[in-house]
């Protein structure tokens, strides 16, 4: 039996592994390699060492977009998670119409980022009209516009995860805590939050990575204006690669820096929250 299992394993695994290697590992390695080359054409290049990495930081552009992106992501992660958790708590109390509300809150997630960006651009501009400005007048508007958009799109999705987490808490646990005289606040801090730790982990992880990956919404809402001040990392990399000839390698170097950064953040976050979950 064991033997037949081993005999058949390659049938399932091999194609996937081969494909995985072709579709992911090779581009990954190629991606790192290319960041050390200057492209003469899109298909050809010469080795230039760390030149591209130096060029990536030669002006403030990349650093600005990095900082903008970090601030954006931190604020979005906090607001989305608090918002989604609050909604989940409200919608697990057996109120009338709970399902309808859940549906409504999830709906924005069905709309593509590019359309979302345009809708919000015009709505925000509509609100700014009396002041005689638009969303691209001041990077501040673009920043908060992106935060609002990101919240609007993701709160419903995260809410669904939190609802599943809350519904998974054994009722005996809650009843026992009630009998022991736990008030609402103690209940939240000592029973509910520790029990849904896995949901918090996954939601933080999802919002964190999508905050750093955001592209479509950024392009449609502000396109980086005014003067690249609201350009986030993905858009900055894209523009470096496609809009400036001779800078393809620099774009790739930025992508490598970006990847390392996201990997570090994601790993740190997972390690911290997993260890917290185990304590709980």
């Amino acid at each position: 039996m064991q033997k037949s299992m081993r005999r058949y394993a390659p049938l399932f695994v091999l194609p996937a592994l081969v494909c995985f290697t072709i579709a992911f590992l090779i581009p990954m390695i190629a991606g790192v390699t290319l960041s050390f080359f200057k492209f003469t054409t899109v298909l050809d290049g010469t080795f230039v060492g760390v030149e591209n990495y130096k060029l990536a930081f030669i002006n403030n552009e990349f650093a600005t977009s990095l900082w903008f992106n970090v601030r954006f992501t931190i604020i979005s992660v906090i607001t989305i998670n608090i918002g989604a958790f609050t909604l989940a708590m409200l919608l697990t109390r057996g109120l009338r119409g709970t399902n309808t509300f859940r549906t409504i809150f999830f709906m924005p997630n069905l709309i593509g980022g590019i359309v979302l960006g345009w809708i919000w651009q015009l709505i925000i501009n509509g609100f700014l009209l009396p002041k005689g400005v638009t969303i691209v007048t001041d990077p501040k508007y673009g920043f908060w516009g992106l935060v609002v958009l990101m919240n609007w799109q993701n709160i419903g999705y995260m809410m669904v995860i939190y609802i599943a987490g809350i519904q998974n808490i054994p009722t005996e646990l809650i009843e026992a805590a009630r009998i022991d005289g736990a008030g609402n606040r103690t209940m939240l801090a000592n029973v509910i939050l520790p029990s849904i730790a896995p949901s918090i982990t996954i939601c933080t992880f999802l919002t964190l990575t999508s905050g750093f990956r955001l592209f479509d919404q950024n392009l449609a809402l502000t396109a980086g204006d005014p003067g690249k001040q609201t350009e986030m990392l993905a858009l900055n990399i894209f523009n470096t690669f496609y809009r400036r000839t001779g800078f393809e390698g620099v774009g790739q170097a930025k992508a490598v820096i970006f990847t390392i950064l996201v990997a570090l953040i994601a790993l740190t976050q997972l390690t911290i929250s997993r260890s917290r979950e185990e304590e709980a």
């Binding site: 992911f24 290319l34 990847t259 990997a263």
Partner: peptide, 21 residues
Amino acid sequence: ALMMITLMLPSHVTTIPRYIM
């Protein structure tokens, strides 16, 4: 583990090599 890493990492670093390929 490798498969899970692809879930985590932004696809940007493989975008250009994939494009070239």
